[in-house]
């Protein structure tokens, strides 16, 4: 998989929030074999070292970071947050979230497209958290995005792929654009399904961090994503409504 000119071996991108401890986060990232982890920025009081400790932990993992603009609701907020993240994390990559509704955390796609344009013109490489809407996707590409990240379901719900038809259509319509399913994944089977549909990767956080055993779940996701990806490459059969015997009928004994 190639994202903004960078070859990435793993098709799982992992969030770093909500783990029971920093040690479990580290073990989960290792078990997931993720090469990209998402990170964020928050207020820190003078003298506190929480941010520095977290940064040291992430840096020692040897993974690439994808900072987000989580919690931003306007172009202005998202752009300023992205500029701050670029300096702190020393990367042009930004996972662009511009939230439009607090119950569903649905993106505000109008602000999203404008923020993507402003950031792309400023040299950012934007990973937009978007819906499966094809027109929005087209506008994001025109704004300069070279990767799209449609949601599976609202963030943190674990509902899986809510609109399989919409996602399949999006995959077919933009067949050459790297696309990552971002948010809503609850189970390894959801991730495998996303890969079987032809998506390039899956980004998830809560499903691993909130599992009873995050490290085992990280490994389960890694295996499911690998299986789904292999299945896609193996060209799955077409589904059909009527049964068809798999055992040859020819030569069947007449015993009635």
């Amino acid at each position: 998989m190639r994202l903004y000119g960078v070859d990435i071996g793993s098709r799982l991108l992992l969030g770093t929030a909500q783990y029971p401890s920093p040690a479990i986060l580290g073990d989960a990232v290792e078990a997931s074999r993720a090469e990209i982890v998402t990170v964020s920025l928050r207020r820190e009081a003078g003298g506190d070292q929480h941010g520095q400790a977290f940064w040291t932990l992430i840096r020692d993992m040897g993974v690439r970071v994808l900072p987000n603009t989580a919690g931003c609701h306007t172009v202005k907020e998202a752009v300023t947050t992205a500029q701050m993240a670029r300096e702190v994390f020393d990367t042009n990559w930004i996972k662009l979230e511009v939230i439009g509704d607090n119950d569903t955390l649905c993106p505000n796609v109008f602000e999203l497209v404008e923020a993507a344009r402003v950031l792309s013109e400023d040299g950012f490489e934007v990973f937009p958290y978007t819906t499966e809407d094809l027109v929005v996707a087209e506008h994001l590409l025109q704004a300069g995005c070279k990767v799209l990240m449609p949601w599976g379901a609202p963030i943190g719900t674990g509902l899986g792929l809510n609109n399989v038809y919409g996602l399949r259509t999006m995959r077919a319509h933009f067949s050459d654009v790297p696309m990552i399913i971002d948010a809503g994944i609850g189970l390894p089977s959801h991730a495998a399904h996303a890969m079987e549909l032809g998506f390039d990767a899956v980004l998830l956080n809560t499903a691993v961090a909130r599992a009873g055993n995050p490290v085992a779940m990280a490994q389960a996701f890694a295996q499911a994503i690998e299986a789904g990806s292999m299945a896609r490459s193996a060209d799955p059969m077409e589904a059909r409504d009527m049964a068809s015997p798999s055992t040859p009928v020819l030569g069947k004994a007449s015993l009635g």
Binding site: G15, T16, A17, Q18, Y19, L25, T38, V39, S40, L41, R42, R43, E44, G46, D48, H50, G51, Q52, F54, W55, I58, P67, N68, A70, M84, V88, F89, I155, G156, N205, T206
Partner: peptide, 10 residues
Amino acid sequence: LEILAPMQGG
């Protein structure tokens, strides 16, 4: 003045 530091994120 906003002063932000690295933090866990999804």
